[in-house]
Amino acid sequence: MIVFNQVNKFYGDFQVLKDINLTINQGEVVVVIGPSGSGKSTLLRCINHLETISDGTLTVNGISVGDKKTDINKLRRNIGMVFQHFYLYPHKTVLENITLAPMKVLGQSEKEAKDTARQYLEKVGILDKAESYPSQLSGGQQQRVAIARGLAMKPEIMLFDEPTSALDPEMIGEVLDVMKTLAREGMTMVVVTHEMGFAREVADRIVFMDAGRILEEAVPAEFYENPREERARLFLSRILNH
């Protein structure tokens, strides 16, 4: 479904992604971990073309992401994204945040879009906040709205870029719970996170990155019990033993 083939990316002289080969299948939950600056977020952001790859090929459902002929707006309808800092539209209500794209991009009627939005708000557990503004919500609630905003486009793929890193510890659980539900329902998910418990419980596969390379790919049990790479072992020992 998502295929990276020999992908490299440079920022000027600095190489952020090195020889990335990665295939993510439909319904799979792939968790990308690794130290800061290892290129995890960049990898994720290439998938919906927020970043442009320098060479190699990257396809989503067989469509080349970087190709000039590709209608990127059409491709993005099918790929929801959740950001570390939520990025809800502060001048719009929760409901308007969610209905905006379905109305403007998919051409849904206001009623249809609102019905769908309410349905997803219920799913993420904050239907009562539909008429609130983002600033009136806690971080965890804002992130759940952001997830609902992504889901309202009914995408096949959801990307999560450190969705819990900006949250108070108490609010992490409520966001992870929503993500777990999605995973169970068969959503294709690519998640950049430091939440090892989540990765272990939900991921079909762990991708470990360091310095722009994918060093290891494994199922969680294997990765956590017996990481092959020394760098992965060091990383795990640092984040698990504190």
């Binding site: 919906n48 993005r76 309808r77 929801g80 539209y89 905006l100 403007k104 952001a146 905003r149 486009m153």
Partner: peptide
Amino acid sequence: GQMEAARSTGLTYGQAMRIV
């Protein structure tokens, strides 16, 4: 991130600029 969030839902640059 406001522009990125808007674009990632499939809005065009012009729509994201005008509405968001």
